[in-house]
Design a protein around this nucleic acid. Structure first.
Lengths: 153, 153
DNA sequence: TTATTGAATGCATAATTATACATAATTTTG
DNA sequence: CAAAATTATGTATAATTATGCATTCAATAA
């Protein structure tokens, strides 16, 4: 992976940025915007790019527009979340997640969002989160689930 | 609104059903499925229908497929949620939501999913939910937000 | 009932998107 | 390094989707 891949990633990244900030109604329009940013590709390439990026096309008042898929956002978010977590440990009844200072709230929010059926609730301080499992849940299992979720280890 | 509108609603309803249960790759395919259900329309009409229904087109391993938009699901869900809530009250530091028996977990889940920036967490029993606001949040404001969210009053 | 209005739809086709194929660029293998 | 294999992309065009216009049909008014 060298020059070429970097360019592709850069293009993909820019595509996502453009889609997030502007209303893109078609691929020709997207090509023009890319060109303004010194990236010149054809509509055909964009068709492939959008597919690979999982970009969705959704009805809006002025016609169909392209949007980053919710899943994509989720993954992007998950990636950043992983960087903020230091450790996940547990005793017989609770799970404790340590994060970098000031990050606990955000990580806890992310966990809440997953609306797991195994979690009763979370409480977050500044750098610590306590996860309370629902009764009937195996702690070990939930710990592993959280590790997977947060992309740890 | 009589015969005509009923037919349209019926078609729209069937379209949503078909999209939910099958992978629909294009409008011609959708037209054929509708025809099998005694509803005959052209691709042009389906193009308009899909737009009106807010149906999104999303990349899948085998090509782009049509899917019911998350928003659409959300609204449908929200509608049912409203039916389950009895009351929303609060004291100076907590909000208590009363639901019909056995519904609290589901409603709490729904609230968690909104990942509000004003909610620290929720704890749900059988018919009661306790919502813990983040410090710095006005209870009144959050109560109103929850009412709007749940479609109460 | 008949006339009028507006919505819904089909038809024809424009606009947009996807893709087969050829080529070039990049990476890998020996 | 040269050859082989893989990947990316443009071109041309096929496939799909969207839409202007005309028509039909249901709803409403007279």
């Amino acid at each position: 992976m060298h020059k070429k891949n970097e360019e592709i990633q850069k293009r993909h990244s820019l595509i996502k940025h453009l889609i997030s900030s502007d209303d893109i109604y078609n691929q020709t329009q997207l090509a023009k915007l890319l060109k303004q940013n010194k990236i010149t590709v054809t509509q055909a390439t964009l068709s492939r790019d959008l597919f690979e990026l999982g970009v969705v096309r959704v009805p809006s008042p002025n016609g169909n527009v392209y949007r980053i898929s919710p899943d994509e956002n989720k993954n992007a978010f998950q990636y950043r979340i992983a960087e903020e977590v230091i450790s996940i440990d547990s005793n017989e009844s609770l799970i404790v997640i340590k994060t970098y200072t000031g990050r606990a709230q955000g990580v806890a929010l992310f966990i809440d969002r997953q609306n797991s059926n195994e979690i009763l609730g979370t409480i977050a301080g500044d750098d610590t989160i306590i996860v309370v499992p629902k009764s009937g849940t195996t702690i070990i299992k939930l710990v592993n689930e959280l590790k997977t979720l947060l992309g740890i280890k």
